[in-house]
């Protein structure tokens, strides 16, 4: 019962914070330079037509009235029409979101699993050659400049060797022919590998280092000596007693980086022309496509909030000391 109340309270919190973000975003966009009207309005139009358009878009109304309309529309999922595409923003976002989630979830989860495993090994063999190699590689991964690394991969594997496509998600011939879902899936995977490697490498370093330092801390704990004193094998001590405790901070990090990656991965998406949210956001911002940019920001906010919520829940499940 206490748990239900906590979850309910947490959800209420999310709603309130989201509302605040919506409000801030609304006013930020009104303050930003550039006039939305000039973007859509053709200079050849007569002043009457321009006036008509402004009225149609509701831009002649006082700002608080615009705000109310905005709130109403947002709550019903009506995020407006993209200036550039001329399509409902909701539809565009819906198309892009799946690709972003596919790429970022798989790369983050993969990086976390491998990072936890390697970090564990590294900490367990602290000071060894293996540990040195792993730590230094992790530091290199962590400090890599994303665009440079992405372009390098693209140049080597896409251009020089030519085993991976240069961008996109599907080969054009598969779009037109009636290919099986399996062939399409395989093709998507083929397209996904380079961006996946990029994001994997970049995330891997931080997870490895985090797990390593967390594990080193845990290994100094007294319950590790207790476990040894019971006569347990080193493997059991490492995996059951140490790693389980050490992985807890990594869980938090995974949740947060998943949220961050939606926008942080925009560069990767851009370079590999991956049709996701991040790339759309760059496009929308550089083209003054306000409705689209606004929706992207709202989505990012929502993902951050939800990811936080999930991490909270997961943490309580993994660490019995935390009760709600």
């Amino acid at each position: 019962m206490r748990n239900q109340i906590y979850i309910l309270g947490k959800l209420m919190e999310i709603v309130i914070i989201f509302f605040v973000i919506m409000t801030v975003l609304f006013f930020l966009f009104r303050l930003s330079p550039g006039d939305p009207v000039s973007k859509v309005v053709d200079p050849m139009l007569t002043p009457e037509d321009t006036q008509y358009l402004i009225e149609q878009m509701g831009l002649d109304k006082p700002i608080w009235e615009q705000y109310m309309v905005y709130l109403k529309n947002c709550s019903t999922g009506n995020l407006g029409v993209s200036f550039h595409y001329g399509e409902p923003v909701f539809k565009i976002i819906k198309e892009r979101l799946g690709w972003t989630i596919l790429l970022f979830t798989s790369s983050t989860v993969l990086a976390a699993l491998v990072g936890v495993f390697l970090g564990k090994i590294s900490a367990w063999n602290k000071g060894s050659r293996l540990d040195n190699i792993l730590s230094i590689s992790a530091l290199v991964c962590y400090t890599l400049f994303i665009p440079w690394f992405a372009l390098l991969l693209l140049w080597i594997f896409g251009f020089k060797i030519g085993i991976f496509p240069l961008g996109g998600i599907l080969s054009p011939e598969l779009w037109v022919t009636n290919s099986s879902w399996f062939a399409r899936g395989l093709d998507i995977l083929h397209h996904m590998i380079l961006p996946l490697i990029t994001l994997f490498i970049i995330n891997l370093g931080s997870y490895l280092l985090l797990m390593r330092s967390s594990m080193l801390g845990v290994l100094r704990e007294d319950y590790i000596i207790t476990a040894r004193a019971k006569g347990l094998s080193e493997k059991v001590i490492r995996n059951k007693h140490a790693a389980k405790n050490a992985a807890l901070p990594v869980v938090t990090s995974v949740g947060l980086s998943l949220a961050f990656s939606i926008n942080g991965g925009a560069l990767t998406e851009q370079i590999f022309t991956w049709p996701g949210i991040g790339r759309e956001l760059i496009f929308a911002v550089s083209n003054n496509d306000y409705p689209l940019a606004q929706a992207c920001f709202l989505l990012i906010a929502l993902v951050v909030l939800l990811a936080n919520f999930i991490v909270d829940m997961l943490y309580a499940y993994l660490d019995p000391r935390i009760t709600h």
């Binding site: 704990e221 007294d222 319950y223 000596i225 207790t226 476990a227 004193a229 007693h241 389980k244 405790n245 807890l248 993994l318 660490d319 019995p320 000391r321």
Partner: peptide
């Protein structure tokens, strides 16, 4: 040979 540790010092695994 078994050992009795000081309990206050986190001698029990907190997640088990």
């Amino acid at each position: 040979i078994a050992m009795i540790f000081q309990a206050a010092m986190n001698a029990l695994n907190p997640v088990m």
